[in-house]
Each structure stands twice: as C-alpha cells, then as structure tokens.
Amino acid sequence: MRIIIESKGSSRTIHLHLPTALLCNAITAGILCKKSAKPEETSNAEIEISHHITYPQARKLMRFLRKCRHFMNGMPLVQIDEADGSKVEIHL
C-alpha cells in the first residue's frame, strides 16, 4: 500500500510504501471497529464511517482488502485534494 502526503507550504512530499498486511490486519480491524463506533470530528477533509462495524466484520473487510491487492494492485483508493493545496492519496 502506498500513501502519498503533500502538505501546503512544504516542498517535500511524503511517500510511504507499506506492506498491505501491516495496515490491513487484526489490529487495524480492532481500531476500525472502535473508530466506527465513535467517529471524531476534525476541521480537515475527512472520510468517516458512522456505521458500527463489529470486530469479525472489520476482519472480513481487512482480509478482503488484502485479497484485492492481488487483482487491483496500485489502484488509488482515496485521493483528497484540499483547496489549500494539501494532497493525500492512498493506493492499494
């Protein structure tokens, strides 16, 4: 999984190349499960899931995302271009 962060006023772009299994695993399933129960409010562009996901469901989603990597490798999952010039991209 590739995460690209470009913040406003900074000439540096952060490229993170992380193993998908590191981001989509049982621990992150637990975090997703907790986060979906209590979404936080922020002032930036954000995507949030308000439906409460149970732990087994979150694990199933994570398993599926790991599987997706094999047939949709490199596909951009999320691309956020903020009006102030900041950018965030998450590629599978």
Partner: peptide, 10 residues
C-alpha cells in the same frame, strides 16, 4: 470549500 475527494471502492 474547493476540496476534491475521489474514492474508488471495489
């Protein structure tokens, strides 16, 4: 606000 969000979901 001019923010653009693109989400691609299988």
């Amino acid at each position: 606000k001019g923010d653009k969000v693109r989400i691609n979901l299988p």
